[in-house]
Computed example of a mutant assay.
Amino acid sequence: MAKVQEFERIALIASDTERAQAAFAELLPTRNWAPLDDAEAVVVLGGDGFMLQTLHAMLENGRVIPAYGVNLGTVGFLMNRHRAGSDICKRIARARSIAIAPLCMDAVTQDNGRHRFFAINEVSLLRETRQTAKIEVTVDDKVRIAELVCDGVLVSTPAGSTAYNLSANGPILPLDSQLLALTPISPFRPRRWRGAILPDRSTIKLTVREPHKRPVSVVADQKEVRDIAEVSLAIARECELTLLFDPGHALDERIVSEQFVV
């Protein structure tokens, strides 16, 4: 990964938490910050949730610029370490860029409504009631599991593989692996199926069985659609995002490190 250029027009945004707002007030007088809609890059102060919110806003607005996150939240997996008093512009100039392609989700509801959202972390299908879900799993136009009986199922990108996917006992994927994780949530049948690792060029279709008795919702990162009939998923390479990381603290290193946490 090559060193990024030194950006001239940089925007500064912050979440509404007390810590993020304090850092915003500290950084605001250090340079002439550009408006976000005219910036070449953006500094994002907050946690992973605010970073995801910012990246999704870029996708929705159709204007994607590199984002440098400063962790003022909790986990901060997508962020850089907060260092009070450091020269943020010099850190950005030395940062390394990592490209992330989101999942594109096309969902069809029981009343034939159609919804398209992007997911940077994962798309998850979840049962809506006490009844277990029954889901048909199709990969590359071939039915792989005719009836997965479960609480749900999710498809994760490498960037999201240490989030909900890991909590559901899914695999951690290196960032450059070009893979997706297909992970069941509390599977009942097939009892021994623990998921699959797929090339990220795969197309995935998840079809709900017995939807009136066993309704299912779908969540693409923070967007939810209820009472779905089917969901189609594929990597959206045309919507590639860029995250900036300090040397030695890149996302791929964090993904490796996470596998040795005990």
Rank of each mutant, 00 (worst) to 15 (best):
I197H: 11
S167Q: 12
P184H: 05
Y164L: 12
R189G: 06
I172E: 11
A196T: 05
D200I: 00
R194D: 02
T162Q: 10
A159S: 05
N169P: 02
P184N: 11
P190N: 09
A159N: 08
R191I: 03
D176P: 01
L166M: 11
A159E: 05
W193D: 00
S186W: 02
L173F: 13
R194W: 01
P190I: 08
L179M: 09
T183D: 02
Q178L: 14
S177E: 12
R201L: 06
I197W: 13
L173K: 14
L179F: 04
A168D: 11
T183E: 02
P199K: 04
T183I: 01
G160K: 07
G195M: 00
R191Q: 06
A196L: 07
T183H: 02
P190T: 06
W193E: 00
F188K: 02
F188N: 03
P190G: 08
I172S: 13
L180F: 03
L173I: 07
P158G: 13
G160N: 10
L182I: 05
T157K: 05
P199A: 04
G160F: 01
I172P: 14
A196H: 05
L179R: 14
L175S: 12
P187A: 08
L180S: 05
P190C: 03
I197L: 13
G170Q: 07
T183A: 01
L179Y: 02
R201S: 12
S161R: 15
L179E: 10
